[in-house]
């Protein structure tokens, strides 16, 4: 099945420019748009600010963009176990902004929901709230956190219908719906595009009005991991 929203892999680069803030879905590799990231790794686009929970693995997902030097700044919650990111930060060519994971998720959601900033109890009284506005409500301190919009959001789902409604496989959704809401341009990578009407309205997690373009993935699950199709 095809969709008016479907684009070819080579079209992806048209929508991403130097210096963009790019929201990239995924918790580890689950829910990460691996094919789209691979395509960006083939281009010269650079100075990207990547908003993603972590930066993939060294040779998979966002780790490829890091190795290529295409990332200027990473905003996320957990980079400790990604040696490449830690090294890049130590060498001074990667800026890192660390956020509590719930603050990151809510910041992205808020950006997509028309809310510019919000107060959260998370991080009050810690190093991560230094230089942030703090306000008391009912005797308790809260930290003002800004929302996190994206010039582009790159997301991953299981199936799309022709309109661009999305459903997910198990815990694949993670940050993807919030990112679809928060991105000015949203490209979703999916396993297949099914005829409109085939997805049940109540199972749709990301509604088509959030999704601009669709691409088909080149990855499949094999032996408990994500493997790039060879043909």
């Amino acid at each position: 099945m095809t969709s008016k929203k479907e684009i070819s892999l080579t079209d992806i680069s048209k929508y991403i420019k130097d210096g963009d803030q790019v929201l990239v879905g995924g918790f580890g590799l689950s829910g990460c748009p691996l094919t789209i990231v691979d395509e960006i790794a083939k281009t010269d686009v650079k100075d990207l600010t990547i908003v993603s929970n972590n930066l993939g693995e060294p040779q998979k997902g966002l780790g490829k963009l890091l190795v290529n030097g295409q990332i200027k700044k990473a905003i996320g919650s957990y980079f400790t176990t990604h040696r490449g990111a830690v090294n890049a930060w130590n060498e001074g060519w990667l800026e890192i902004e660390l956020l509590p994971q719930g603050t990151m998720a809510e910041g992205i959601r808020a950006a997509g929901a028309g809310i510019p900033a919000f107060y959260t109890p998370t991080g009050a009284g810690t190093k991560l709230s230094e230089n942030k506005e703090v306000r008391e409500f009912d005797g308790k301190e809260y930290v003002l956190e800004k929302s996190i919009p994206g010039d582009v959001a790159l997301i991953r789902a299981h199936k799309a219908d022709e309109y661009g409604n999305l459903v997910y496989r198990k815990t694949q959704e993670n940050f993807n719906t919030a990112m679809a809401m928060a991105g000015k341009i949203v490209i979703a990578e999916v396993d297949e595009i099914v005829p409109t009407g085939e997805l049940k309205p109540e199972e749709i997690k990301t509604q088509h009005l959030f999704v601009d373009y669709l691409v088909k993935t080149r990855y499949e699950v094999e032996g408990g991991t994500f493997v790039e199709r060879t043909k």
Partner: peptide
Amino acid sequence: LGVGGAMDLVAG
């Protein structure tokens, strides 16, 4: 370089 969900859990 990492905090994950630790602070959200403690706070909430």
